[in-house]
Design a protein around this nucleic acid. Structure first.
Length: 160
DNA sequence: GCCAACGTTGGC
DNA sequence: GCCAACGTTGGC
């Protein structure tokens, strides 16, 4: 099983929106970056776990956990001219973009802010893709060690 | 294949 | 709103 971090702007789609979705799940559409797509298409698997990260908001950080509940399949929103993420270059016979289904798992006991994670950028989270310089990927891998470390932070009192 | 211009992301 | 860091595009 693999671990991931999925970014979403809460003003667009938050962890609360995921929880409120039918069956607490949704298709993770709209990924339009090749590296992010490759992670989803080639490495994500049904049953994987993912941090749900809130970006571009007042308190950026990990809000909760979602589970990947499908393999990757073509992102049909790329074929819809009325969709925000329409891509005329994506051919239904040779789809350019993929998505997976994700299901709400739980919120963290407390959100783990980007600020808090940065406190470990020189040790436990040194290799965390999210903290690597200038990483703007919306789908990023997380190692088991990093995953367990962040989940462990949940139990602690936040350090000022 | 190079690279300048442009657009987007996302923290602050 | 600003701006750094990239990714993409397209002329050559």
């Amino acid at each position: 099983m693999n671990y991931w971090l999925l970014k979403s702007e809460p003003s667009e789609f938050s962890i609360d929106d995921l929880e409120a979705s039918p069956n607490h799940q949704t298709c993770w559409d709209g990924v339009r970056n090749y590296q992010a797509r490759n992670f989803m298409r080639d490495a994500m698997a049904d049953g994987d776990l993912a941090f749900f990260y809130h970006s571009n908001c007042a308190e950026p950080g990990i809000a909760g956990i979602a589970r990947v509940v499908s393999a990757a399949y073509p992102d049909h929103t790329a074929f819809d001219p009325t969709d925000k993420h329409f891509d005329a270059a994506s051919d239904p016979d040779n789809p350019r973009w993929y998505m997976v289904d994700v299901r709400y798992e739980r919120k963290l006991l407390r959100p783990i802010s980007l600020k808090e994670m940065k406190q470990y950028k020189d040790n436990a989270l040194q290799e965390l893709a999210l903290l690597r310089r200038g990483n703007r990927l919306s789908v990023m891998p997380v190692t088991a060690e990093q995953w367990n470390f962040v989940v462990g932070l949940e139990q602690r009192k936040p350090v000022a």
